[in-house]
Simulated assay, not measured.
Amino acid sequence: MTMRRTALKPADAQQASIANVAERAGVSIATVSRVLNGIANKASAETVARVRQAVAELDYRPSSAGKSLRQRQSRLVAVLAANLANPTMAAIAASTEVALREQGLVMVLCDTHDDPMLQDEYLREMRAQQARAIVFLGAVASPMLDLVRGGPTPLIFVNRRDPGEPNCDFVGIDNAQAGRDVAAHALAQGIRRPALIHAPLASSATRARVEAVIGSFAAAGFPIPPSLVLGPAEKEHLALGYAAANLLERGGAEHDALICTGDLIAFGAHRFIEESPHSASLPIYGFDDNPLNDWVAPWLSSVLIPYGTFGRAVAELITDDREGADRQRVLPHRLIERRRS
């Protein structure tokens, strides 16, 4: 009797691997990984179609157990910063890199420019690279963030909380208390009618600071009128502060201080005041107390964020996988008082 032999597909003999898919499609393993992780802009439509056809023909299914094992072994930690032009974020990133290196981990630093689409592109790439963890130095709401939240890759939020989940892994200061501290100091100095200049309120840190300052002045009997609460639609904080100071001068509303939700906003406002022949010198408050303030801003009182300790707290959250462990790291802050020029 003649027996007919049937050629076995890799899926029949054993589960197909990503290498089998790459060979069938005639592309690299990295290209297959990117296509499977939704990074379509990294490959042509023809390549994407070939990869998907190979996946279907081989009945390829990624092994979740294998992926989890590789993820635990990965040394790569992605840090996505909202704005590296801000010295505060650069200082936190530097602190994080040192702490991660001490733990044998490698940091990849990306600047999202507070752009949801760019943040999503980096998230796709970091997921394809199977990063050990992803650290956000200022996250914005985005579709890809919604997708990876709750997945196998730990997400750690620094300075701003997760815009979609307030009970996230978090490293930062108590921004509401910091706002109350600024208001208390200003009130003690006899300030009764400050102008409040803020960044977009989508940021949890900004929102907490604004609400605390407004609430504190209202509780003291000196509510801040809406005309003195400004958040111009400028993307860069320097430009935002400059534009707000310009609006204040043109509007003519009396105010006896400026409270800005970030130091760069304060820098922009101060620049307009210096250039305007009509503006008077006022006390100015900020948040962050970035490292340049002692050198270039002796007029700015600011809330000091302890950059040097952020990195160690981030590294602890990445390496501490105990069940039920506290995943919030609220670090101390203090107001640095400087005399106005």
Rank of each mutant, 00 (worst) to 15 (best):
H333C: 07
N290W: 13
V171A: 00
P62A: 12
A54G: 05
G286H: 10
R149P: 01
L240H: 09
D111R: 00
Q14P: 10
S17L: 15
L8H: 08
M144Y: 10
P332L: 11
R52E: 08
G231M: 06
S216Y: 03
M126K: 02
S204V: 10
P163D: 06
K235M: 07
A49H: 10
A93Y: 07
A93K: 06
A139R: 06
A56F: 11
K42Y: 12
V106W: 00
A257G: 06
A239V: 15
C110I: 12
A195G: 04
A325S: 09
R339V: 04
A99K: 07
E165H: 10
L100A: 01
R124K: 14
D294N: 14
E102Y: 12
L228T: 03
H185C: 05
V108S: 05
K67T: 06
R24A: 07
A183E: 02
G251E: 01
A30P: 00
A16D: 07
V140M: 01
L118P: 01
D169V: 14
L292W: 08
E46L: 12
T319K: 02
S17W: 15
L76M: 09
I224M: 03
N20S: 06
Y285M: 10
C168E: 08
V27G: 02
L155D: 06
V79M: 09
A257E: 07
P154N: 01
M107S: 10
A49L: 11
H278V: 14
I305H: 01
F157T: 11
